[in-house]
């Protein structure tokens, strides 16, 4: 475990907790894309299939349970909670899941390290995670208003993967362990997707004005 990975995991943990706390306290999910949250629940499910078969460390297992638990409870809140669901903007959050899920699945079947069910599912989760934020970014552009917590949520999500890239670079040079190119590509694509959001986020923060994404 190196500092980059720990910082990345903590940033990731913080992002989901910020979101869960926001929804739980103000009982609203305004500006949050349910599609993205459902895609993340799918990412964690397909990524952590080995949670009960391969024990790596207590930290690893606990974090997996937290990510699974938080992503599913966020989906539950937006779908089922009698107050929160009213603030869900389903007319604007219209990104089709299968536009992302099908291509990632096909890609994972053809481009993977080992053609086994678990390995294909793991690769699928890497590809899907890279694009899962798209419905959220589309929603932010449509609604054109980003409340602070949502902006921080997306920023933290992008930052976590950028830290993971530093972790892969670090591990590449310090351990016989070498990062597989699929992980590199998916991680870089994911971080690049956030790049334009980062740009506008920093602009708004620097000029101390409300964050507006160009249409």
């Amino acid at each position: 475990m190196n500092i980059f990975r720990l910082a990345g995991d903590m940033t990731h943990l913080f992002s989901v907790l910020v979101l869960l706390l926001k929804i739980h306290t103000i009982k609203s999910c305004a500006g949050i894309s349910l599609k993205t949250q459902e895609l993340y629940a799918l990412v964690f499910t397909t990524r952590y299939l080995d949670i009960f078969t391969d024990f790596i460390s207590l930290y690893n297992t606990v974090m997996k349970l937290i990510f699974l638990g938080s992503s599913f409870s966020i989906v539950w809140y937006i779908r089922r909670h009698k107050i929160v669901r009213r603030s869900y903007d389903k007319d604007q959050d219209t990104f089709r899941h299968y536009f992302l899920v099908i291509p990632c699945l096909v890609l994972a079947v053809f481009i993977n390290h080992k053609f086994t069910f678990k390995e294909v599912m793991w690769t699928f989760s890497l590809y899907l995670e890279a694009v899962a934020i798209l419905p959220q970014l589309v929603l932010l552009q449509r609604t054109r208003n980003i409340d602070n917590l949502t902006g921080q949520y997306v920023f933290l999500l992008g930052a976590y993967r950028a830290l993971y890239i530093l972790n892969w670079i670090y591990r590449h040079f310090t351990e016989p362990h070498y990062v597989h190119w699929i992980t590199w590509i998916a991680g870089v694509v994911q971080t690049l997707l956030y790049a334009d959001f980062f740009y506008y986020y920093f602009q708004s923060w620097k000029n101390n004005e409300k964050l507006q994404l160009p249409a």
Partner: peptide, 10 residues
């Protein structure tokens, strides 16, 4: 066998 020890990551 190049065990993909990537799996120790989240």
């Amino acid at each position: 066998d190049t065990k993909i020890d990537q799996k120790d990551e989240l």
